[in-house]
Nucleic acid binder design. Structure first.
Length: 491
RNA sequence: GGUCGGAUGGCCGAGCGGCUAGGCUCAGCUCUGCAAAAGCUGCUACACCGGUUCGAAUCCGGUUCCGACCUCCA
């Protein structure tokens, strides 16, 4: 029996996963900043961690999954003149910042449902934890790691470096060379040291979203919310913290420094980082202009897309690559996944109609059990979804062969097959049948049509039978004549 | 410039010292009234140059390309 191993960014190694307080597991994932439509790259991270969450649950851990919503404090720039992204958008649209927040939070939740993401157990917001953030800043100052300048508070990285490493997670060293370059660039900075970062930002009179604090009206620094909300709900030390690669530095590095500075403890046992999404080999990003939105991907309404792809196809496509590798989007790759996904789901769907034709255990039964074990083994190996999917394809090939009577199974083997496929396809990978499988009325209408076509075929009335098939095909309903009768599906 | 990661068959994408992942495409066959679906068979790749080893896509050194981060980003 294997056990779960996770690649820990901090140690740069795969480590056996040992929860701090089994059977409880704390999982924190950096959520979206809701100043715009959720980005596809965001969704890839959330999908990756959705599988992490599902699998931990599957291993019978009691997981508390916290994923935040950043609704204030994320500045367009870390310098002195940075502007809050949400506030900026609100002003441009002449509406309340909280309207922006509500609008894009709703949008994000909608897309999450389409991707079949399980809701986190707690979805805290930065604005809901201002008090806690102020308290943390106080502790940081009290410990000598923060200083105030003109109503803003900065984290004193130089002081911190006297006692602790900074840059451990991202493998970065703060060197003098860089200090000089930067010091020159940022002439009139309030910071004492180039690497210092803001933990409280003084607000101007015009700022709409601001809160009173011991240092005057202002907003908390972006990195602070994650430090506060993760430890508030998961404890001062918790198991897993996830996010995108690009958050390693400075965001996650700052989180560690803040927690150590405030409470003397590094909060996270296992740091997990998902890799980027690329388009034609380049990182998909808003600033590069090569990104499309989830809804554009589903509808196909984007110049770079040949057609639309269903949410489940996209989810499957994402899971065919390991979360730590870059994933390149292209029409060809998406089309390949679409077909593969349909094949997998068709096999899975035909499973209940299979018959056990052996009284005792067969070789196929054993093979099924072995493939079930390998699914688990692959998931245990740092959530290797591509390999798990490969085993699932082997399983679906067995399903087809049983269906074609080239393999035989016992009832026990069949039950096992059903249980394994359900577990990994639905529960662990979170793949679901697309909702367009029709309804009762359509089912009975199709039953009637197929019956009529059957009698036409028995009378060798090919004109009628082919007409039925072709016309249905034209509206997207495929007719498949099998040995055991005719079935249909909507494409 | 610094730090880190990557180069795998027609395409996508696993692999982390021996046991030819998987998906898609393509070709042939079986089944079928025809078609589709399904099944079977075929297609043996690891950027380049050295080295270590009985054995390397996998380890070491070098070369060339590509990407990410270092400034907001998932």
């Amino acid at each position: 029996m294997s056990s779960l191993h996770i690649y820990n960014t901090l140690s740069r190694k795969k480590e056996e996963f040992k929860p701090i307080n089994p059977p409880f597991v704390g999982l924190y994932v950096c959520g979206p900043t809701v100043y715009d439509e959720v980005h596809l790259g965001n969704m890839r991270q959330f999908t990756s961690f959705d599988v992490v969450y599902r699998y931990l649950n599957n291993l019978d851990y009691q997981v508390r999954y916290v994923r935040n919503i950043t609704d204030v404090g994320h500045l367009t720039d870390d310098g002195d003149d940075g502007e809050d992204k949400i506030e900026k958008k609100a002003k441009a649209n002449k509406i309340e910042p909280m309207e922006i927040v509500q609008k894009y939070t709703n949008g994000f939740h909608h897309i999450s449902k389409l991707f079949n993401l399980i809701d986190p157990n707690i979805e805290p917001t930065a604005t809901g934890h201002i008090v806690e953030q102020i308290e943390m800043i106080k502790r940081i100052i009290a410990n000598g790691y923060g200083y105030e300048v003109n109503g803003s508070v900065y984290f004193d990285v130089k002081k911190y470096l006297e006692k602790y490493p900074y840059g451990e997670l991202s493998g970065r060293k703060i060197d003098e060379q860089l200090e000089q370059t930067r010091a020159n660039l940022e002439g009139g900075s309030e910071k004492k040291y180039f690497a210092d970062f803001g933990i409280w930002k003084a607000a101007s009179k015009e700022t709409i979203m601001k809160w009173p604090s011991p240092w005057g009206d202002g907003v908390p620094g972006w990195h602070l919310e994650c430090s506060v909300m993760s430890t508030k709900y998961l404890g001062q030390e918790f198991d897993i913290h996830g996010g995108g690669m690009d958050l390693k530095f400075p965001h996650h590095e700052c989180e560690i420094a803040q927690s150590v500075g405030a409470d003397g403890r590094s909060p996270v046992r296992y740091w997990m980082h998902g890799n980027m999404l690329t388009v034609n080999g380049e990182k998909m990003s808003k600033s590069k202009g090569n990104s499309f939105l989830p809804l554009e991907l589903f509808s196909g309404k984007h110049p770079m897309l040949k057609k639309g792809f269903s949410p489940m196809t996209v989810r499957f496509f994402m899971l065919q690559t390991h979360y730590s590798s870059t994933l390149d989007f292209s029409n060809e790759a998406l089309e390949a996944s679409e077909k593969g996904f349909q094949r997998l789901m068709n096999a899975y769907k035909s499973l209940p109609s299979l018959l056990a034709k052996s009284k005792q255990e067969t070789d196929t039964d054993k093979e099924i059990a072995a493939l079930g074990d390998s699914c688990k083994m692959h998931m245990d190996d740092d959530f290797n979804t591509p390999k798990t999917i490969a085993s699932l394809f082997d399983l679906s090939s067995i399903v087809n062969k049983i269906n074609d009577n080239t393999l035989t199974v016992s009832q026990a083997g069949l039950n096992n097959l059903q249980a394994i496929m359900k577990n990994f396809i639905e529960d662990v990978l979170g793949l679901a049948f697309e909702a367009k499988q029709g309804n009762e009325a359509l089912d009975s209408a199709m039953g009637l049509i197929i019956e009529m076509r059957k009698s036409a075929r028995e009378n060798k009335d090919w004109t009628t039978s082919d007409k039925i098939r072709d016309e249905l095909g034209a509206v997207g309903i495929a007719i498949k004549d099998g040995k055991e009768g005719t079935s249909w599906s909507i494409s």
